[in-house]
Write a protein that binds this DNA or RNA. Structure first.
Lengths: 249, 249
DNA sequence: CTGCTCTCGCTTGTATGCAAGATAGCCCCG
DNA sequence: CGGGGCTATCTTGCATACAAGCGAGAGCAG
């Protein structure tokens, strides 16, 4: 199976280090990723860092502003909606395509929900964010299609960036309950219902976002000057260029 | 403003040239892509070619065999099933998520089907392959989600590679009729039915593949020797097309 | 004639060097 | 004191140089 990242070890080290940093909410959107810094950090030359960056760029996780630097993407409100839309489609389709839930599958889901609950009780928001995203990846995994799993992993990474940008308050309990309901439906073999619940759940999460709070303080100025909304590097709708300053926190 | 404005135009040129070559079935799976050759062809240095290759590699379109070269992927039978599985999930989910079909949408679909028919009547198999893949991309486009469109584009590219490997006889008429049925369901507003038809259609296409005909004639020998399954993509070197050689047709 | 070995050439892998652009800060001017 | 331009510096962009590995083919031994 060629989809798994096992090609060149160190190369993927850089790439996956950043992805895992995002998945665990340790790297914020807009973070600048200096080639030199990373090169020093990993003890390699810029060449390999650049390669990792370009790979991440094709995965829509990182973005380059020419001659200025690499930045972790800050999805716009439109992109955010697209990502959630894509997740709704894929996850619902995935659940609907499932026929049985194996015993290991059930155990995995149960175990995951327990972890969610533990993190919630401990108030560990960072870990919770990570687990909340992982839940959907787990489901994709037990559907047994690595292609889809890979796709959802990247979408989840973007989702986490989105929530770091727009999520004012984290309705952890609500999300957790959503997951539980989905799991219940799956265990009862009603995958159509699980699919519906999944759509609802993603809707809830998306509604919980405050998409009015702009990550780019200049966007309204930009539009009032009728400048191109955002530089769009890839056909899929792009990321914006933004000064290096992250908004104060 | 669909593609890169002025920054990495050439970069994307190499990448998209290869993808479009695959989408139009002009580049066969297993084709060797020499960095030097491509560099000369595009008038750039190997660096940029390598960058394009790595981007394509993260999209699972190209594959590198260390110190031997870059090759267009030759999906295994398992991968082929995974790709079809992913497409079923995504396309069915997509159709099911649609609510209306705009007038332009209907026109686009109709126009596309007409093109299919024309190519079929003309017996232009290459063009037909291209159009057949494009149909699904078109549908994704009119769902209005660029994220999903992008994903499906890459899956379609892989699908075309798969069909070049495993499709012994091309049931063009059957596929075309499948497309027509899906379009009909969409026009009548019955997207659930369109989704079902789409799943059936992809099933048909997949069933039409001869997944027993191995792209790697040595695979059984390899497995009987308990070597790693297919780390070397093109060991036969006989009938495979070479990059600059136009194969007769 | 067959089979082994060694070498040469061609491939990618990686680092480095130089060029170009953008930003920030300074200096000069009004 | 404020503003405009200039330079200094830091960033990426790209090409090139060198290193390392794999394979094909020549040459040689049996």
């Amino acid at each position: 199976m060629q989809d798994s990242p096992a090609t060149s070890t160190l190369q993927n080290t850089i790439e996956e280090a950043i992805v895992s940093g995002i998945l665990s909410a340790r790297i914020r959107p807009g973070t600048r990723l200096s080639e030199n810094q990373l090169a020093g950090l990993f003890g390699v030359s810029r060449t390999r860092v650049r390669e990792a960056m370009m790979r991440l760029e094709t995965r829509c996780i990182v973005h380059v502003s020419p001659r200025r630097g690499w930045f972790v993407v800050e999805p716009s409100a439109e992109e955010a909606m697209m990502v959630y839309g894509a997740r709704r489609v894929i996850e619902a389709g995935l659940l609907r395509s499932m026929r049985v839930l194996s015993d290991e599958g059930r155990a995995a889901v149960r175990g995951h929900l327990a972890q969610e609950k533990a993190a919630m009780d401990a108030g560990d928001r960072q870990r919770l964010t990570c687990l909340m995203g992982d839940f959907h990846i787990r489901i994709a995994e037990l559907a047994g299609n690595p292609v889809l799993t890979e796709i959802l992993r990247d979408l989840t990474a973007r989702t986490i960036l989105i929530s770091m940008l727009y999520q004012s308050d984290f309705h952890a309990l609500q999300s957790h309950l959503g997951h539980c309901r989905i799991a219940d439906a799956m265990e009862s073999g009603d995958f159509a219902k699980a699919a519906e619940l999944s759509v609802e759940h993603l809707d809830d999460v998306e509604t919980g976002l405050d998409l009015t709070q702009r990550p780019d303080p200049l966007s309204e100025l930009r539009s009032s000057l009728s400048l191109p909304p955002r530089s769009v590097p890839s056909p899929d709708g792009g990321t914006k260029t933004k000064p290096t300053t992250t908004k104060g926190e």
